[in-house]
């Protein structure tokens, strides 16, 4: 049986969901016996590879980079999981939605007067609205929580491992 190709990704989130993943403690070792970690902000891998079995995606889609990454993940992954409340519903990352992008920028960078000019080149362009992942790409499962409970993460992964197609 080939190992399951597992990826984790980090869009507009605070990394708390990845902390929860690390909080699996020794279960993490068991997990890595079954899986090969092929992409993650916790590992030094530059490009999201093809042929990923399962991706845990933290964070909402808040800027152009996130949107591009989400599309790439969908294209190259069998099972995409929204990990944590930002991915599930925007949550804290989406707190700017009620006032809108320009007002949020003006509040955060008063000198810039809300102008969006610096964004778009080296700093990714903020989207007008922060979106939950499933409103950008098709999502197969959800692990809510801010941060999600480690037990919920292992339960979700276990349910994937049980699927006949998993692991080939």
């Amino acid at each position: 049986m080939r190992p399951i190709r597992l990826a984790t990704a980090w869009l507009s989130g605070c990394s708390g969901c990845h902390m929860s993943l690390l909080n699996l403690h020794h279960h993490l070792l068991e997990l890595l016996l079954k899986c090969e970690l092929v992409y993650s902000p916790l590992a030094d891998i530059k490009e999201y590879p093809a042929g990923v079995d399962i991706a845990l995606v933290e964070g909402a889609v808040g800027n152009a980079d996130n949107r591009e990454m989400a599309a790439l993940i969908r294209e190259r992954t069998v099972w995409v999981v929204s990990l944590g409340d930002c991915a599930v519903n925007g949550n804290v990352s989406g707190l700017r939605n009620p006032i809108g992008r320009e007002a949020a920028l003006a509040a955060a960078y008063p000198a810039e007067n809300g102008s969006h000019q610096r964004f778009g080149s080296d700093v990714p362009l903020l989207l007008p609205r922060v979106l939950p992942l499933h409103q950008v790409i098709r999502v197969d499962a959800f692990i809510p929580g801010c941060p999600p409970l480690p037990e919920d993460i292992s339960r979700m992964l276990a349910s994937f491992f049980k699927q006949p197609a998993a692991g080939g």
Binding site: V88, N89, G94, F142
Partner: peptide
């Protein structure tokens, strides 16, 4: 575990 509608915000 998720909301199928767009958030009005």
């Amino acid at each position: 575990d998720h909301v199928r509608y767009g958030f009005i915000a």
